[in-house]
Nucleic acid binder design. Structure first.
Length: 935
RNA sequence: GCCUGAGUGGCGGAAUUGGUAGACGCACAGGACUUAAAAUCCUGCGAGAAUCAACCCUCGUGCCGGUUCAAGUCCGGCCUUAGGCACCA
């Protein structure tokens, strides 16, 4: 059989009959399946594309047979840097390169038999399309959603070019190796942060996978907290900090401004100026990720200025440090080293005081408890690597040294005294005082409940010099040095926690009871936060504030190959939008262009294009030369597919209402956070100005794993592990490639390429072809196959709509094996198999189906399974004894528990294992398992 | 670093959501057919102990601990790995 000829024959058939073209206002139920349209790169279609397009193709083909009006469109996301780079190098216009690439991609897609509705094809680079992208930008502008702002960008001084974070990885220019700088640049921005809450809420109106929703939620990064104003000593100014922990305001011992904070130069005192400026310069080379790495060494410098803590009027130093980002919150923080890990590390390094304002609570409170203060001391012998413990045996087990603080006694002195009294050791080195803990407990020896405020101390043993112990009568224990492992024996919550504090010095970030906090004392975190917000608002020095991590969208790119931003800068009128009727603003038709010296877009050098008239006053003006990011065109393309050739509007409301939404959207994992968020933002904006029918236009979002090279690495030319789908189609046929990519593994996970496995799929198809020789003349279905046939129909339906493509194929293999085991099968048996296999292998199944005289599958109906025929009347289930399988029994569907029990008890091997034991209970899960528990 | 996934035989992976771990396929080994090869068909295939052999037994889903009659699946703590982190698309 010649696969290639068959494939071409059916591809032509579909084209000729417009099989996959859909019209609106059909009485059929619409279903819109979307795959992310590709960037048509020069290297052609990737086997990864084949995986997701086939999967969604299978779904589209099945649902068409089920009677849905399926929209499965394809287009091209063709703006972007690679085409521009290629064009600069080869002195051609990028549109030429793009045209070629699209031609290749389309040919490859056709040769795979994807059932796209090609009548709706477009590219984001078509002026008919980007006209509407520009038009929509103008709507953003007209509704106050677009504005210019100055923000830092990665700048390569050698290439004179703005770099992406990827190209500037490690602070070095990807192309030339120069040190990358941060440069301030004026950019168009979209007010996406205004939509933070709506984007969060809108998720409830989608069916995205939980992990996709989580990705969006984390990107938006909502946190509730407060803004607090700090006055600067000797200045009129005050700066504002954002904090989620305003309850710890009494524990603030310094403040930190981002190095870029506008006040820095103003408040820095003369003697610190040099240092501060040097530090600012140093930071300009780092990106946010390098700066906020949690376990890097904290750095920073003192500005010489002081702020006033609004709650207790204390004077606290102002530092600058790179762990505070200008782009998050207010670009300034209040630092509470006792209760924030980063602040803690900074405070330790710069020797800043640490004030504990929150105490952890352990144990359960009890009525009539007695209050006291106490200590717990952890003593470590470095030489022996052992800890000093008291073993109280059955009177409380293993503990560290604890004791009650006497009236007027200093806690540290108390700790030393207790160690000496209880163990005799006195030659100690004080290491650290640990956070205080409130502990509720019952004292066995005294028969009373206590609530103690305990201070932990950590000592190291200097020498084993010892005096006599001085013990009370009820103090009966052994003094024991134990290893780290044995510390697990210390069960007492207070002692164990003290030990953990000693071993892991750091901030106490949990909840507890406030101390040292004036009017907050005695409250827990939540109460104290509310109370503090009240205080701040009453005293006009702060307020409740919800902060979002998500920032506004930087919408400018200094590139040639993007949608020109339709704005004109007039010396008299300022920024003026183009008239809508003048759109599209076409890219100039030149093949020679270079970036400018100062990092402007290459468009800036094309003066004919740049110089224009102001739409408002008619005077000489200049066009914006920045272009839009790649995300722009892909933020609304799914709307255009609903009405792809409309020249009056981007899509008509009627058609959008008919299609309703994208029912199923498949794309890469790497797009689940950003592309999806941009697209949702775009749609929500259009909805708010009345241009689309719903606020969320995408219902289900799923993502596929990558196809890796056979070496389990990402495919790349340099690694030489790239598989070209054309080669595979040529040697094995498109259907084989489709089946293999569906079968290769869990669709949602990465899977390595294996040509051996691919051959196995070809063998499977060959076997399907050979079954044709087994046809008999009987009518209807073979009776012995009916249960399996009905189960397979159900399984395929379920799997194709739940991304279980690999198990769909495996169930078809099982069906084929069952057919193969028989002497002969009927035509109906065979036809059923072909229809079920058709979504995944559309060519060969059509051919075989035609050969046995049936009408084309693409014009047929999907089979319906019969619920009654799926039920198995007998089943083999396992019998366990104490959870271990000891035998199996065959049960009938109507066996009651007693019969099942009897059958289980008749099993020889089961009897062997219960013999001589007492049966405690017998668990029978109907149709699943029997477990006999014996003693 | 932070967020989100993933980790099961020699390999890709299954396990209807807590109920017989390893479906289906690949690779491999043995056999049949053949002058031969390919194709095809049959058999075996997690590890281990014991046995002539079979049944059977022990262990086994990244590591440590827990919950449960029962854990690949749930809980706590780690390790490894992939993706995202705002100008790659």
């Amino acid at each position: 059989m010649n696969y290639r000829n068959i494939e071409e024959k059916w591809q032509n058939y579909w084209d000729k009959h417009h099989t996959f073209e859909v019209k609106e206002n059909n009485k059929k139920k619409p279903y819109y399946i979307l795959v992310e349209f590709p960037y048509p790169s020069g290297s052609g279609l990737h086997v990864g594309h084949v995986r997701s397009y086939t999967a969604q193709d299978a779904m589209a083909r099945m649902m068409r047979l089920q009677g849905y009006n399926v929209l499965y469109p394809m287009g091209w996301d063709a703006f972007g840097a690679p085409a521009e780079q290629y064009a600069i190098k080869n002195h051609i216009h990028p549109k030429e390169a793009v045209k070629e690439n699209i031609k290749t991609f389309k040919k490859q897609m056709k040769s795979l038999g994807f059932s796209f509705d090609w009548s709706r094809e477009f590219s984001t680079t078509d002026s008919d399309y980007y006209k509407w992208t520009q038009w929509q930008f103008l709507q953003f502008y007209k509704h106050g959603m677009a504005y210019k702002d100055t923000i830092p960008v990665n700048w390569c001084p050698t290439c004179k070019s703005v770099l992406s974070n990827e190209d500037a990885a490690g602070g070095v220019c990807e192309r030339c190796g120069s040190q990358v700088e941060q440069k301030e640049k004026s950019q168009w921005m979209l007010r996406m942060s205004d939509y933070a809450e709506d984007l969060l809420k809108g998720l409830d109106e989608t069916n995205f996978a939980e992990r996709v929703k989580l990705g969006q939620i984390n990107w938006i990064g909502k946190s509730e907290g407060a803004h607090i104003d700090f006055k600067i000593e000797g200045h009129d100014k005050k700066f504002t900090v954002f904090t989620t922990r305003c309850d710890t305001l009494y524990g603030v011992t310094y403040c930190v401004l981002a190095p870029e904070h506008p006040y820095v130069s103003e408040i820095t005192t003369e003697e610190h100026k040099k240092e501060v400026e040097a530090y600012q310069k140093e930071c300009s080379f780092k990106n946010d990720m390098e700066r906020t790495e949690l376990n890097k060494d904290k750095t920073g410098v003192f500005t010489g200025a002081y702020a006033i803590n609004p709650v207790n009027k204390e004077k606290i130093p102002i530092y600058i440090s790179d762990y505070v980002l200008a782009t998050y919150g207010t670009g300034a923080i209040m630092a509470v080293p006792a209760h924030d890990q980063r602040d803690y590390e900074f405070a330790i390094k710069y020797n800043i005081p640490i004030v504990q304002v929150l105490e952890e609570v352990s144990g359960e409170p009890h009525e009539n408890e007695l209050n006291k203060t106490s200590i717990v001391a952890v003593v470590y012998d470095e030489k022996e690597d052992k800890f000093l413990t008291l073993n109280w045996h059955d009177k409380g087990g293993r503990c560290f040294i604890g004791g009650t603080i006497h009236d007027g006694e200093d806690p540290l002195e108390c700790a030393k005294r207790e160690i000496e009294e209880e163990t005799g050791y006195y030659d100690l080195e004080f290491v650290s005082e640990l956070p205080k803990i409130f502990h509720h407990y019952y004292a066995f020896s005294k028969g009373k409940y206590y609530n103690t405020e305990s201070t932990g101390f950590y000592f190291k043993l200097k020498s084993d010099k010892r005096r006599d112990q001085r013990l009370d009568d009820d103090e009966i224990f052994d003094v024991e040095w134990v290893s780290k492992k044995q510390i697990d024996e210390v069960k007492d919550a207070l002692h164990h926690r003290t030990y953990e504090y000693a071993m892991n010095p750091g901030a106490m970030v949990g909840d507890g009871i406030h101390i040292n906090s004036g009017f907050l004392n005695g409250m827990n975190k939540e109460e104290a936060i509310n109370k503090m917000i009240q205080f701040l608002e009453d005293n006009h020095c702060g307020k409740k504030k919800i902060n979002y991590r998500m920032r506004d969208w930087v919408f400018s790119r200094q590139r040639f190959w993007g949608e020109p931003i339709p704005m004109i800068n007039c010396p008299k009128c300022g920024w003026v939008p183009m008239n809508e009727e003048d759109l599209p603003l076409l890219l100039p038709d030149v093949a020679e262009y270079e970036p400018t010296e100062d990092g402007e877009s290459p468009l800036a050098n094309i003066t004919d294009w740049v110089n224009c008239k102001c739409p408002k006053c008619g005077g000489a003006a200049k066009r914006e030369t920045d272009t839009m990011p790649n995300w722009a065109g892909s933020s609304w393309y799914f709307l255009r597919f609903m009405d792809a050739h409309n020249d009056k509007e981007f899509a008509s409301m009627d058609k959008m209402k008919y299609w309703n939404r994208v029912d199923w959207y498949n794309g890469g994992m790497e797009h689940t956070a950003r592309h999806l968020l941009y697209a949702r933002f775009w749609v929500q904006f259009l909805y708010n100005i009345g241009l689309v029918p719903s606020k969320e236009m995408i219902w289900t979002r799923v993502s596929h794993g990558m196809v890796l090279g056979s070496d389990n690495q990402k495919m790349s030319k340099s690694k030489g592990n790239v598989i070209n789908p054309d080669d595979i189609i040529h040697e094995y046929g498109a259907d084989t490639l489709r089946i293999y990519e569906m079968f290769m593994g869990d669709y949602q996970m990465d899977a390595p390429w294996s040509t051996d496995s691919l051959r196995g799929c070809r063998r499977f198809l060959d076997k399907v072809i050979r079954l044709k020789d087994k046809l008999n003349d009987k009518k209807g279905f073979t009776e012995s196959l009916e249960v399996l046939q009905n189960k397979t129909i159900m399984k395929i339906e379920y799997d194709i709509t739940h991304m279980g493509y690999n198990t769909a194929i495996s169930s078809l293999m099982i069906l084929v094996n069952a057919y193969d085991d028989l002497e002969s099968i009927t035509k109906d048996d065979y036809h059923l198999l072909l229809v079920l296999l058709n979504p995944m292998a559309p060519h060969i199944t059509e051919e075989l189906n035609e050969a046995i005289g049936y009408k084309p599958i693409c014009e047929s109906e999907w089979p319906k399974y019969d619920e009654e025929k799926i039920v198995e009347h007998t089943k083999e289930i396992a019998v366990q004894v104490n959870g271990k399988v000891r035998g199996t029994i065959t049960i009938s569907i109507d066996d009651d528990e007693q019969i099942i029990k009897d059958k289980a008890m008749e099993c020889d091997n089961v009897l062997k294992h219960i013999e001589g034991h007492e049966i405690v209970k017998i668990i029978i899960i109907k149709g699943k398992i029997v477990n006999i528990v014996v003693k």
